[in-house]
Design a protein around this nucleic acid. Structure first.
Lengths: 132, 132
DNA sequence: GCGCATTGTTGCAGAGTGTGATACTTTCAT
DNA sequence: ATGAAAGTATCACACTCTGCAACAATGCGC
């Protein structure tokens, strides 16, 4: 379902959250669909199931999923209407964009490679969009 | 020179590194220019100067700056030729791009706002570029 | 209806990391 | 040569991440 890097310095919880967010955003995990039980996903990923449980909690705090004891965890209905925080959200996006562009520039990646890389990312998240 | 958020959960060192990277990438800190002494920048930012020193070390490890006792820290000459790692670098960029696009989609930001935000980021990092 | 498997939740302990404090070494100006 | 100024190295405390184990709620089969 998702992949994580056990040796990364990025916390496992954050990696799991990110992977699930991508799955939700891209439609791999549609609204209403059920996430795997924490123990199962944990087993697949090779981490303690508590770590997965905390990732689920994290997503629940953001309103992306809903968990309940004994009933599992499923994706919230109207996913697209969540983060309507506006001001702070836009700042966060802007900062992330600057970070990405900074890295792209400092690595000296040729323009063409950068373009194809970017388009691939767009396609993976927004499979239905014509052009960025 | 740069700005950080003392209350952020992102480590201070990382924030400082990021700010300096952006300054270097955008040309605010041109190759050969001198960075402020650790104690001065630390004072400006309101953190311990040891934290700034570690940010400088971090940048030095990446080859972006060079530090020496008693002589200060300055930006490396050929900044653009640093991260030529290719494979891993491209993976890192791709992951960052997916993350950004995921967030953009999940927040449900209108297309127009997203476009202007993106263009603003491009302009701030790549002041001389025509269009993304 | 009752037990039992399954699911997520909570509290605790150890390892690792970020931050600050302090002492040290090198360089440059006077 | 002396002292100010710049970065380096080591230690200590606090916080967080991760794993562990006990717990609570739900639903299924008998």
């Amino acid at each position: 379902m998702i992949r994580i890097d056990l040796d990364s310095q990025e916390p496992l919880i954050d990696q799991i959250v990110r992977g699930l967010r991508e799955a939700i955003a891209s439609g791999t995990l549609p609204p209403g669909s059920e996430l795997p039980p924490v123990r199962q996903l944990a087993n697949d990923l090779g981490v303690h199931w508590n770590t997965v449980a905390r990732a689920y909690q994290n997503l629940q705090t953001c309103g992306l999923v809903h968990s309940a004891r004994g009933r599992g965890t499923r994706v919230t209905g109207d996913v697209e209407q969540i983060g309507r925080d506006r001001e702070s959200t836009r700042n966060h996006l802007a900062e992330q964009a600057r970070r990405l562009l900074t890295d792209a520039k400092l690595t000296g990646l040729p323009r063409a490679e950068w373009e194809s890389l970017w388009q691939a990312a767009v396609a993976s998240v927004w499979p239905s969009l014509p052009k960025s």
